[in-house]
Design a protein around this nucleic acid. Structure first.
Lengths: 340, 340
DNA sequence: TTTATTTACGGAAACGGTTGCGGGATTGCC
DNA sequence: GGCAATCCCGCAACCGTTTCCGTAAATAAA
């Protein structure tokens, strides 16, 4: 319990609560000596204003929510770090909600956020989300919202993302130039626009180099690790095995490595692998993994910066404000072409 | 802005605010038909009670704080996931604060938490923390506190940790049994009790197998990656190079891999490596990394469970309540002993 | 000296729920 | 029919801070 409150401070000083309140906020209405007395006693008594009383009165909580599908993943962890860094600078608090890639949980969180608990929301959609009414309801409550990475195309809100289409194209091109003639694409969710874009980049990449696309080479993975393993194992066990794999998310690349080890397939000899990933250990894998690395930390910072611009009303953010931070191809051994 | 409030609901229903409030909390004082009317209209109007008004009146925020040194690290990310899972079940909200291994930031966060913003705190100390007055001040405000992993020995609060001493011993023993005769230990912070314990396990392990310990083989690393690289490189470049390395944290093991690659040293041939780590890719590294894996997710859940027990006053938690969740040795190729 | 203005502060009403208390109406019991 | 118990509900205070409004004193302007 925080025992000492503003009224007690005021009584101690023979001042009114309003005067003390103003003094603490350094108001011009209060004389310098009075301010000093207030500051001194406040410090001495270790006075901490009750944030809930303040929030109630001011209709501002100085709190934002970060809603993400998972956290045990370098991309999201770094994004959180970016967001928290900016929030701290601005004196804001960060509530975190994990949806575990589950729409129902996302809906529940969104509903809860309508209470006015937060001043704004930074969100990355779950892989299952198709219907976005729960997000729109947030918008209708005038709660500022910023998407990052897994954005929602249909909703007019600022978005921070990477160049997914180009990256998909580049990844595919990279595999083709490494000699691949049969490239598979592992994707997680076809309801996410980033998945579409990456896939479109993949398809166009194939087209650009006169490779025919084959629906059998597009594997729709889920959130179930074991099922993903089976799907990938089936893919790599088939007689028409691909010689290149483009994974749209990190965990699928990890499964590819596991499958290859179990099947005795050699990377990059038998199959080359490239993946969207922020693994710090990508260069230490066996073989080192060629990645498309997203600037996760910067994306988090950018999303937070946009949100706070809106909260502080410095600028009116355009609803369709979009920031694209480019991902970076980091070629490593998993896509090395045969030498000699 | 959340426009519809309790009073408006009440007026609409021709009831008093108190009746509506009680009805929504399913009080026995309200008749069933009245409750039903209230429920129906509340749902229809999508009424969400203002959490700040409620918190102010009840002196409970249904919010907890998680204070950790970093998040871009599988251990802490998984711990957060565990905490968030339990918190969600209990209907609590989770504020996250990153100290970035910086005491000053930790002190600032602790000070801020004295405002009564949260009902309880789950904390893992920064590597720099020696003076713990800021933590004690939290205690004095009667804010329930639970430590996990990087606990503070001197403070009477529940602690969730792993068997660091035994794990340090086992790691050292594992290296010795793999044939190492000169084992180095990489540690991060000598102010943390877990570092002490791990190191003590290391020292006792050496002693148990009649190996003499050598202060030159204990490397005190920092939070600066480049400096750590230099320190480790110096260690592995010396003429009295160790043949085994026990890293107390994951990132140091990663640096060891980098140094070995750059120096052309072979793992496990030239030097064997074991590390505390929760890397999902440990088995895919080149070579696969032998780890001591902490049950991060379970530790997070356990810490949260203990905290909520105290918050809900179901049990009076003993101040020195300690839960030890054992870490697990996962032998892999980085400590494989030479075969023929 | 009178009037207008500024300075410095206090009173009290918010903000939106929660809860102790009290009281009218209905029911039960003899 | 009288009395008590029970059932439902309203009144009003309260949580701690902010802010609108008012005002007395001090200063400036006329």
């Amino acid at each position: 319990m925080n025992t000492v409150n503003l009224k007690q401070l005021a009584k101690e000083l023979n001042l009114s609560a309003s005067t003390v309140s103003r003094a603490l906020r350094d108001s011009w209405e209060i004389s310098t000596p009075t301010k000093q007395r207030v500051f001194d006693l406040a410090k001495k008594m270790n006075f901490q204003p009750n944030p809930y009383a303040s929030s109630l009165r001011k209709h501002r909580s100085r709190t934002i929510a970060v809603v993400i599908p998972e956290v045990a993943n370098n991309f999201f962890a770094l994004a959180i770090k970016g967001i928290e860094t900016i929030a701290r600078e601005k004196g804001y608090h960060v509530l975190i909600y994990l949806t575990n890639e589950d729409v129902k949980e996302e809906v529940a969180v969104a509903s809860n956020l309508q209470s006015g608990r937060v001043d704004g929301v930074i969100l990355s959609l779950s892989g299952e989300t198709k219907d976005t009414r729960h997000i729109q309801e947030l918008q209708q409550r005038n709660i500022p919202l910023v998407f990052f990475d897994r954005v929602c195309e249909g909703i007019g809100a600022p978005k921070v993302m990477t160049n997914d289409y180009e990256s998909g194209f580049i990844a595919t091109e990279h595999l083709i130039k490494a000699g691949c003639r049969r490239i598979a694409h592992l994707t997680v969710s076809m309801s996410l626009s980033i998945s579409h874009k990456r896939m479109q980049g993949y398809t166009d990449g194939l087209l650009r180099y006169d490779q025919q696309s084959d629906q059998e080479l597009v594997i729709h993975c889920s959130n179930d690790e074991e099922e993903n393993y089976r799907l990938i194992r089936a893919l790599l066990s088939s007689d028409k095995r691909p010689d290149g794999i483009f994974a749209s998310v990190e965990k699928l690349a990890v499964q590819v490595y596991h499958v290859c080890r179990d099947l005795g397939l050699e990377i990059p000899g038998d199959v080359k692998v490239i993946s969207f990933s922020n693994l710090v250990t990508a260069s230490l894998l066996n073989p080192s993994l060629t990645t498309i690395a997203q600037p996760a930390y910067e994306m988090g910072k950018e999303a937070a910066t946009i949100l706070f611009r809106r909260l502080e009303k410095k600028y009116i953010v355009m609803p369709d404000d979009q920031v694209i931070l480019p991902a970076k191809l980091e070629p490593r051994n998993s896509t090395r072409s045969a030498q000699i």
